[in-house]
Amino acid sequence: MNIAERFNEYRIMWVLVLFDLPTETKKDKKAYVDFRKNLQRDGFTMFQFSIYVRHCASQENAQVHIKRVKSFLPDYGKVGIMCITDKQFGDIEIFYGKKIQDAKPGEQQLELF
């Protein structure tokens, strides 16, 4: 595989985790906080309050992180996991009120080998 194929915007993936978790009891709140902390430990960053994203170099790498998220799912609530290509992620339009905001530039992935 040549360098152009390795960094192709259709090969690079973004994993999105969307969730709606209960926070009515202390136990619910703890599960919510633990879930968010686990996402952050695995390299996810907050996109919106209940949407976290992670840049992955390939579909195979994305599957590793999806499997990891599934391993720490909370007992209650709704969680969705979605993969999109870097090209699709780059086409997102972000608005603050009616004013369009430039999307943050994509993360650079450093590979040592």
Rank of each mutant, 00 (worst) to 15 (best):
K70A: 09
A62D: 05
N8H: 12
V79L: 12
L39A: 08
E107R: 14
K37N: 06
D86H: 13
F47Q: 05
Q59Y: 15
K27W: 01
F44Q: 04
E9M: 00
A31T: 02
K70V: 08
L21H: 02
H55W: 10
Q59D: 14
Q88S: 06
Q109M: 15
L110H: 09
G97P: 10
F35M: 02
M46C: 08
F89A: 12
L112S: 01
K26P: 01
K98M: 12
N8Q: 03
Q108P: 04
K37R: 07
V69R: 04
V15A: 03
V33R: 00
V79D: 02
D28P: 01
G97H: 10
L18I: 14
A57D: 11
M1D: 07
P74A: 10
V53N: 10
A4H: 15
C56S: 09
K70S: 11
A31I: 02
F49S: 11
K98R: 09
K67I: 09
Y96R: 13
Y96Q: 11
E24Y: 08
F113N: 01
F44I: 01
I51W: 06
R11G: 11
E93T: 13
Q101W: 08
F113C: 00
Q88D: 11
F35K: 00
C83S: 06
R36Y: 09
V69Q: 06
A4M: 14
L73S: 07
Y52W: 15
M82G: 03
D102L: 07
Y32W: 02
A57I: 15
I92K: 06
F35P: 00
Y10M: 04
E5W: 14
I94E: 06
Q48I: 15
Q63L: 15
K67M: 09
E5R: 15
K87Y: 14
L21D: 03
D42E: 14
E107V: 15
S71D: 04
G80P: 00
E9Q: 09
K98S: 11
